[in-house]
Amino acid sequence: MAAIYSLFIINKSGGLIFYKDYGSAGRMDTNDSLRLASLWHSMHAISQQLSPIVGCTGIELLQADTFDLHCFQSLTGTKFFVVCEPGTQHMEVLLKVIYELYTDYVLKNPFYEMEMPIRCELFDLNLSQAIQKDRVSLLGR
């Protein structure tokens, strides 16, 4: 079964505002996750500059031997990325769904402060439902 290892959301200045891991593979402690998030932020920015293509928006997919990293950047610069098993399909769609949940349950929440870590009960709830649904649909194939 294809699996998602972890999900990161980073703000426009590279700070980690949300981290969640699923299952044991690729689990890391708080410091490591913060480091990886800002590392990815810088790599993403450099890739935009290095790209030979005009108007490049940065890395969307990083494929490694042991994992795939799918990244989605919103227009405001917030980045969502998932680390998953190599060859996992439909991650772009999942990232869009997560973005939608973020706009609904985080941005419309009066108690959320912009660019700060996300602590919203409804977001957690709906996110785990979306990931669950995604797993079910992957199993069904």
Partner: peptide, 14 residues
Amino acid sequence: RFISVPKDMGAFNC
């Protein structure tokens, strides 16, 4: 619908 009240606000309800 979209509001999660933080724990430190107790029983506050919008």
